[in-house]
Every structure is written in C-alpha cells, then in structure tokens.
Design a protein around this nucleic acid. Structure first.
Length: 827
RNA sequence: GCGAAAGUGGCGGAAUUGGCAGACGCGCUGGACUUAGGAUCCAGUGGCCCAAAGCCGUGUGGGUUCGAGUCCCACCUUUCGCACCA
C-alpha cells in the first residue's frame, strides 16, 4: 500500500477537531504548560515561511502533550491596523470584512498544516469584547498618571496621513510605506513607559531563557547611562544652564558648551545678538529637518555670543548651538570635552575651539586624541582633586564633589522615551476620552465601555481620520456635566492590543473583568513564547511594561510575562531579476548551466525573504497537494537549526517525503524480534530525540530519526516501530496517527505517552580503548561496557609495555564513551 | 563608527566537557527495475592518487596541548542590530 498523504491528512485533521483534542479546561488540575506563538496580523495568505513558526510551535506542543503536560496552546488575531484600512480604501470594502475574511483563510491554513490550537479560546483584537479591555486598561493607566496627553514633536507620515512611533521610523522613513517622515508638533496620547525604565532594564537580568541578542537589543533601546547633571553659571542669563554628562571626570577639559537649537534658553541667549535674525533662520532650518537630514548635514553650529562658567576651572567658556545635540535627551545641553569625545572633537576642529586633554594613559604616556575609553586604561590629570585617579574612580569622586558643592548630582538617565500611542486612524481601539468645554478632559466612565468603533464610515484615504466625520460618534454629552462635548477620535497603537493579549487567553470570554487574576497567576508566565525577532524590541518591551503596570495594580503576581523566548529564523528563496531590476516569475525562468534565463535574456538570482512582490513565495497548498503537510513539516524543521535563516529548496522537500515513505512501507513487514543493535539504537534515539526537542534542535532530532529508520532497515520489530511512530509524531502527526491506528490502537497517538530511554540498554557491549602516550599510539584494548575503571586498568595491565609507562606517571584523562575510540593519555 | 553573531564538501548542515571531522539530507556518479523517469530501490561520493598505501584538509597567520572545527592572540570576510543618546 502506497503512502498517500492527501487521503490521510484531512481525515485526521477532522478527527482531532471533532474530538476537540486541544481544548482544555484552565481550572482542571495537572502540570500546566503555556505555549504561545505570537498572534499574527491577519494579512491573508500564509506561505511556507510563515509555516515554520507555527509548525515549530505545534511540534513542541505535541511533544509536551505526550509528556503528560496540560498544555494551553491558544491562537488569536492582532486584527487592528493600517493594512486593513488601506485595503478598504483600495478595494472599497470594509476593514472588518477584509480582516475577518483573512482570518478565515489563515485558520483553514493552520488546519491544513495539522496545527492544533484551542480554538475555544480564540480572540480577535478588533472585536468589542476584546478592545473594551484595551479601553479599561487605558483608563487604569490614566488614573495612575501613566497615560497622559502631551504636546510633542512627532513623526508625521505624509503618505499614510498619520503619526508614527519613533520605533516605526527607520532611517528617517516610514517603516510601512517608505515615505520621508516629517516633524510636527501635535498633541498626542502617551504611556509613561519611562517611569519603568529602571525596572525594565533590571528585569532583563532575570530572563535566563531569553536569547542574549534580544536582551541586548532591549538594553540598548532602554539605554541606561549613569552620569551627572551639572550646573554651569551663565552670567548674562542670571541663571545656570544644566548639562548632563556621563564623563563628569573630564569636566576640567570642558572648553565650551553646546545647546540643542530647541533648548528653551536659546531665545534669551541670542536676544541681543547682532545677527539674531540669521541665527533664528538657521535654527528654523535645523528644526524643520528630519532626523536623517540633520545627520546627513554633518555637524553645524552657531556661537551665541554668550559664555558660561566652568564650575571647576572657573574659566568662561563659549556657549554654542549645535545641530547634533538632541533636545529630548538629557537636558538638551552638553558640556563639550573635545579631547575625550569624538563628536565634541569633530565640532571643535570645525570651529577652531580649544581642546584640552585631561586624561593620561595609565602608562603615563599621552593618548592620541580624542581618547574616549571609559575604563582603567585612563587616569585623570590636570583635574585638581581627582588627579591620578583611574577613570571609573575619578567619576565616582567628582560626583561626590559636585554633590558636596551643591552644583549638581549623580543621575541615571535613559534613552527610552514615552510610548506615543495615538494614531489618527480609523481601524483601531477608540481612546475612551471626552473633551468638554467646561470640565476639560473627561474619561469615559468604566460602565459605559466599550466605546464602540462605528462601522458606517466612508473610506477615502484623505484628510486624516474618518472617525472625525462621524457625527454620532464625535458628538456626545459630557459624562460629568451633561453639556455637549466631543469624543476623542484618536485610536490606539495596535501595540497596545498586543501588550496584554497573552493574559486574555486564559479567560477569553469573561465580560466582567479583563482576566481572572487567580487563574492568570496560575497559568502565567508563558512557558514558551515563539515568534520572529522583528518583535525583539517593541512588542516585547511594551508587554513587559504593561505586565508591570498590572502587577503594580495588584492584579498580577509576576513582572515578566514570558519565561522562555524563542525567535525562529526566516525562510528565504531565490528570486529572479531582469536587467531593469524587475522581479521575474519563476515560471518564466529556465536554468541553463546553473544560470537563470528568460528566453535569451540572462537574469540574476538573489536569495531573499519570501514575499509576494519578489514573486518567490512557496504557497503551501501545492506542496501539500503533492507531498502532504507532514512532508512540509518534516522538511521545514529539518532544513536548518530553527533560529537560523534557511533557504528553501524544492529538491530538498523530496528527501523528507522519501523518509516518510520508507517509514510507511515498513508497516507491511513488522517482526516480533529485535536484534540487540536495533534495541540499542532505539534507546539511543529515544534519548537523542527527547533532549533535542527540549533544546529546540529539531533538525538533528529528525536526523536521529532518519538514522534510526536506516538501522531498522525494511523489517523492523513492532516495538521499535511503535517507538519510531511516537518519536516522529510531533513532526509528522498525520501519518503517524494513521499507522498507529493501523496497528490496532483505539486512542490517538497524540494522547499516548512519550517513550523513555533505558540508559543501560543504550550502551555498547564493548568499548575499544586506545592507549596513547605522548601522542603516540601504544596499543588498543577492548573492555566490556559499561567500562569499569578496574577492567580498563586490568586490560591495560595486560599490556606489558603500557604497564611500564604507567609506572609513576599521572593519568590526566580517561574517557569512556560508548562506540568511540578512546584514548588514555599519560604524561 | 559602535555592538553582537557566524565562517566546516557542490549545497543545507552534524560533531556533550578539546578525543575517529563531514552524521543526516539534497545534489552528483554508477547500477537495478522500467515503454519512459523529474517515481522507487541498491551502491559510491572531502581533496590529491588508476588503485592501494600514504599525504593534505574546518576563513588567514601564530600559540597552548599527547591531541584543536572546538581553547588563547592577531587579522580577514559575511550577516544582523543600533545609528550623533553627551
């Protein structure tokens, strides 16, 4: 009987669904396990690259099920967001219709991959039952001063007609559409994540099972810096200007000061400047530049004509304005120490400002300038009270002095800025606030939630948010005084939706509260979180932040939502470009001598991320129709280590298919007796596959199964075959279920118990031991396994020469490894 | 520029604590079965060599060690992240 996956797979998918195998009662006893794949944005069709993420999660889920864990494995939809709105404008449909249609398609695709989710817990963030709690959360944060309205220079995307978070601006362009981002002053809603900067930074140390890379990216993003705020007197201003520095030890080398053009003191400083108009014009020019343009312009500055007093040298130093000083970091003013800071050095050279070195090398020599090392390699000099101290100590000491003199203080600052959550867009959670002329800002009372997003709005793609044109939505009575008032029309950043969804999965239908605290504290943190590295900073940082705010409200007993994090790599494939750089469909491409052609035109091949525009996506449907979902699953996991990027190969798929076909064909020739070799290999394989799944080494877990099947030949024992089916189940669930049933089992293989390796049976009968002395082979002996030390020595003792060498020498290493040539090394 | 990770056959990749380099798979070569093969099965497959013996082989150059893909130093290359954060 031939292996025909297309006949087997739909049958088992249906049986699992009918038996609701993945649905669990969160109140039931048992050892819990919370598995979670990041919930996707429902963009439509899934390709094999997306599949990797979910297949991987499903394999782990099935493994833990077979280990007897009560496993929660839910799925939902990050269903608000810009693409739905853009599609609505383009196709004249409603974002909701477009979104729900995509959800249905993706759900079917998950089914065809054989992926088991607990669909009774499905959530979609665009539904009022869900976003009601977004609004509730907003109100709690507002109550605690963690949500506030502020005016800020914001990134405005002229193409999408919306404000973008700093994180959504990449190289000065809109992350989504690529348009150049403009700076605008607007009143916006923020979440005060900066209040949690220190805890978000410190908490990273507790995340033992997160990739180092992700922790580092978060750490850099938070950008913790220890330093000092120091006041420099400015006689002409009648008040000091405060600067922030991480190198207060270099203050004796501060030869000028630079302010950001946006600094509020600038106006007073240049008020009586003879060229005031020219300077103001320059400031306006700089302020209108995007961050990218500013940087590309190089370092530019203007002298204000005023001076400040260096509090340590007593010198008057010039105050400059500089385009490289960031207004939002520190105090928007800095003391420039050109000798020990590259940027200050560059600026000083450009404008001929003095450079004074105040750090010597520990060796006593003078370093080449600028010398910026912040470690023990430098020693303070020409710096009065801190002379001779190594840099780290000098920093501590000078901060003490600054504090004693009352001219500043040691301080920790962060790069992290508050989270701008306002979006001038329709398809998102309405922010539950009302503007009343009498009462001002009034929160919508909790009992009036949800503020429902109206569905009957026009989509023109022009003039901002369509919500603003919906009179019934906008015009409301003030909840406090009853007078006519206006509703907030901004919606929330979709990262708000995803900052707490993992808490909702435990009790997704609760309409009285955001979640059941007792159950959530039992099920969370998530044991295993799986998703792309593209969420390394934003999503994960926001989720960690919101979790802490809920912790501080007394609702959660934990501060870190995800105990273990795994980032899978992308799947790439070659795409073909013609001479003009346009992507060419693979169906038009012909390979000759390994080079791609379209007719006579030679094309270039490029390995890239799969995407529709590059015409290099592999749709799973064709693949499944030809080889089955099990083959796709096995190939996807076998292709490379799961955290690595991997290139899809259509030929490679065949190997996985052949392997499954061989396992299938064994069924007809089962035997009762197993040879000792097979028994040993079985236990070795059980051990190998188990540890490799635990370590997310699926590629080698599968190669171990291939080896096992090679040892089994075409006539395995029934016992070994059953073990193979179990070990293979997480990777090829349909075929193994079918064979398991054919063996006469009534229960699902999924609900059977994972096999346990017997270590004693894993051992080889004998071990070959080679004895080497000073690198030269002195003989080999065979001893029984498990090798006992006494037997090894006895065996060695049998060799006269070795015995002599051994006398009076130290045995430095003994290795007993089954099946391996082992050296005894003697010094 | 700063930070991080990685360099192993034609390709994807294996190799607990330093211990038979190249597992497993693709591809390729030969064979079997076939009207046919882009199906299936069997054998071979790092390089040099007709073959054997042997020698050479994990980015480059040094070092430690009886022994190095693995550890140390310097360098080269690639990928990713951040990008004037004082």
């Amino acid at each position: 009987m031939q292996y025909r996956p297309t006949e087997i797979e739909p049958k088992w998918q249906q049986r699992w669904a009918e038996a609701r195998v993945a649905e669990i009662d969160v109140a039931a006893p048992g050892q819990k396990l919370y598995m979670l794949n990041m919930f996707p944005y429902p963009s439509g069709d899934l390709h094999v690259g997306h599949g990797r993420n979910y297949i991987l999660g499903d394999a782990v889920y099935r493994y833990f099920r077979m280990q007897g864990r009560v496993a929660l494995n839910p799925m939902g939809w990050d269903a608000f967001g810009l693409p739905a709105e853009n599609a609505a404008i383009k196709k004249q449909t409603h974002p909701r219709v477009w979104t729900l249609g995509n959800i249905e398609r993706m759900k079917r695709q998950f089914g065809r991959w054989g992926i088991l989710y607990d669909w009774s817990k499905e959530i979609a963030s665009c539904e009022p039952e869900y976003y009601k709690w977004n609004q509730w959360l907003f109100l709690q944060l507002y109550k605690r001063g963690l949500a506030y309205r502020g005016t800020a220079p914001v990134n405005w995307c002229p193409q999408d007609q919306t404000v973008l978070a700093n994180e959504q601006v990449v190289d000065g362009r809109c992350e989504r559409c690529g348009a150049l981002v403009e700076q605008r002053e607007l009143s916006q809603w923020f979440f005060k994540i900066t209040d949690y900067a220190d805890r978000l930074d410190a908490g990273l140390d507790t995340l033992e099972h997160w990739p180092e890379k992700v922790k580092l990216m978060q750490r850099n993003w938070i950008g913790r810096s220890r330093g000092a705020d120091v006041d420099f007197d400015v006689p002409s201003l009648g008040k000091p200007i405060r600067v922030f520095t991480t190198r207060p030890d270099t203050i004796f080398g501060a030869t000028f000061m630079v302010l950001a053009p946006e600094n509020p003191d600038v106006a007073a400083l240049i008020a009586d400047h003879p060229d005031r108009a020219a300077i103001e014009e320059w400031i306006t020019g700089v302020r209108n530049q995007s961050a990218l343009e500013r940087q590309e312009a190089g370092k530019e500055g203007r002298f204000t004509g005023k001076t400040a007093v260096n509090p340590f040298t007593g010198e008057e130093i010039p105050i400059w304005l500089g385009n490289f000083v960031l207004p939002q970091y520190g105090t928007g003013a800095l003391m420039a120490v050109p000798a020990h800071d590259e940027r200050d050095f560059e600026f000083a050279k450009q404008y001929g400002l003095p450079v004074r070195s105040v750090i010597a090398l520990t060796s006593g020599e003078q370093p080449e300038l600028p010398f910026t090392a912040k470690d023990e390699s430098g020693v303070a000099m020409g710096s009065g009270p801190i002379d001779g101290l190594p840099v780290p100590k000098a920093i501590d000491r000078i901060i003490e002095i600054i504090e004693e003199r009352g001219i500043g203080r040691g301080i920790v600052r962060y790069r992290l800025r508050d989270w701008l959550i306002s979006r001038q867009r329709y398809w998102g959670t309405p922010i539950p606030m009302i503007y009343c002329e009498k009462c001002g800002l009034v929160p919508v009372p909790e009992e009036q939630l949800p503020v429902t997003l109206p569905l009957d709005v026009p989509f023109t793609g022009r003039e901002g948010n369509p919500l603003g044109k919906h009179d019934a939505f906008v015009n409301v009575a003030c909840p406090q005084c009853g007078a006519a008032a206006r509703r907030e029309t901004d919606t929330m950043d979709t990262f708000v939706d995803s900052s707490w969804y993992f808490l909702r999965f435990v009790t997704p239908r609760d309409d009285q509260k955001i979640f059941d605290a007792e159950l959530v504290n039992r099920w969370l943190p998530v044991d295993q979180y799986i998703g792309g590295v593209e969420h390394a900073i934003l999503h994960l940082l926001y989720a960690r932040f919101i979790t802490r705010t809920l912790h501080d409200m007394g609702l959660l007993s934990f501060e870190e939502p995800f105990a273990r994090l795994f980032n899978q790599g992308m799947i790439t494939k070659e795409g073909y470009k013609d001479a003009r750089g346009a992507w060419v469909s693979p169906s038009e491409v012909e390979l000759r001598d390994g080079k791609p052609y379209r007719g006579d035109e030679e094309l270039t091949a490029e390995i890239t991320k799969m995407s529709k525009s590059r015409l290099n996506v592999v749709p799973p449907d064709e693949l499944i129709a030809r080889f089955g979902a099990d083959t796709e699953r096995v190939y996807t996991l076998f292709i490379a280590p799961p955290e690595k990027e991997a290139a899809w190969s259509d030929e490679g798929v065949v190997g996985a298919f052949r392997f499954l076909g061989r396992v299938w064909n064994m069924f007809d020739r089962l035997q009762d007796q197993a040879t000792p070799d097979v028994v040993r290999k079985m236990h070795q394989t059980i051990d190998a596959v188990t540890t490799r799944i635990e370590r997310f080494e699926f590629n080698t877990a599968i190669s171990a199964l291939m080896e096992f099947s090679n040892v089994l030949g075409d006539a395995p024992s029934r016992e070994a075959y059953e073990a193979l089916l179990k070990l293979l189940h997480p990777f090829a669930p349909h075929m193994t279920e079918e064979l398991w049933a054919m063996l006469g089992n009534e229960e699902f293989l999924l609900t059977s118990r994972w096999p346990v390796a017997d270590r004693a049976l894993m051992q080889e009968d004998t071990v070959t031991i080679a004895v080497q002395v000073n690198g030269k082979l002195r003989g080999q002996v065979e001893v029984a396994a498990p090798a006992e030390e006494a037997k090894v020595f006895e065996a060695i003792g049998a060799n006269e020469k070795i015995q002599n060498w051994l006398a009076g020498k130290e045995l430095v290493k003994r290795i007993y490894v089954p099946g391996k040539l082992v050296n005894i090394v003697v010094k």
